[in-house]
Design a protein around this nucleic acid. Structure first.
Ligand SMILES: [Mn+2]
Ligand SMILES: [Mn+2]
Ligand SMILES: [Zn+2]
Ligand SMILES: [Zn+2]
Lengths: 170, 170
DNA sequence: CTGCGAATTAGCAACCTGTGAAAACTGTCT
DNA sequence: AGACAGTTTTCACAGGTTGCTAATTCGCAG
């Protein structure tokens, strides 16, 4: 995403006003290396500017995206994610923690598609679903240790073992 | 998706009962060549069995999907779509009418991904966004005819020209 | 055939994400 | 400074999906 100063100029040039809320969001997104949801960005923005509304966050983000300064991505996790990276890239999505990471793919243009049959492709989005390293590790551990086959114990010790990798894939 | 008879067996083997509702849904999905939403399937099911509940449709579809007989796909159009085709395939999504069509892609395994960096890929989903033939045609037409550059006319003839291709891509 | 436990239904409530609308507010231009 | 158009905020609400409960039905193992 462009720097706040450039966005400011671009907004004004488009007849859009540059408000403190927008400036804040310009900055937060510009500095952002991840793929925040509106809600998570709202939460961060609220720390800097209490009182800002979620509606404004949505508004500004969709403005930015329709100006091509931002990409909207949907990894199927419910909420739309906003991507400050507008390079041609794709995403890794961890099935365990939900983390999303950028990935650059070569050869996506040479995909052999059958029965295109008149359909004209505009953009291609690729999602790689799998496990990020932290999640894969904890999974391996818990699978080697796994299930003590129910030894003694009177009341099945409620297995609240939903391992929480707390990784940073945002 | 497997045939109703096989699903019946599989359900019973899993200790699930085979009710008329489930049988109907087995059949409707088995015969389905598209990518229905829960709601649209509910609507069809209701014709055959008035009184069936949307809740049951959701229930059965998620049962089927967790048994691997069905795939859940999210093309970003709001509602989850249920795909009876569990072959390894991908989708064309029309940006104009929202239609979804199957497409078989070769070479998706040989995509060169940079910085995989420990992430282990399980499945890859590819969405080709673009225009289906009917939509492309009406779009071309309306763009060659398009915008008479405002000639005379007193009141800009309200361009209610949102062309409705009514195609069958479901 | 019977009985038990599962499944369905109806009628909600709740959740999440996102949008529409109205009223109050404020950036920007002159 | 003043006017006006664009913005923010708030609140309501829609769409999709799941959760819950109670009452009833029903599949199916024995
Ligand atoms: Mn990205
Ligand atoms: Mn499909
Ligand atoms: Zn992970
Ligand atoms: Zn179309």
């Amino acid at each position: 995403m462009k720097a706040p100063a450039e966005l400011t100029a671009k907004f004004r040039a488009s007849g859009l006003k540059v408000t403190p809320q927008r400036q804040l969001l310009f900055r937060l997104m510009h500095e952002n290396k991840g793929h925040p949801t509106a809600e998570s960005l709202f939460s961060v923005a609220s720390d800097h500017m209490p009182g800002i509304s979620l509606r404004t966050v949505y508004q500004t983000l969709t403005d930015l995206s329709s100006m091509g300064e931002l990409r909207l991505i949907d990894v199927g996790s419910g909420a739309t994610r906003f991507d400050p990276n507008i390079d041609d890239h794709h995403h890794l999505v961890c099935q365990s923690c939900g983390g999303v990471r950028d990935v650059y793919v070569s050869g996506s243009g040479q995909l052999d598609v059958n029965e295109l049959d008149g359909f004209s492709v505009d953009t291609t989005t690729i999602l790689f679903h799998g496990l990020c390293t932290p999640c894969r590790v904890t999974q391996e551990v818990s699978s080697t240790v796994a299930e003590p086959l129910v030894r003694i114990s009177k009341s099945n010790t409620s297995s609240k073992n939903t391992t929480n990798p707390k990784e940073r894939m945002s």
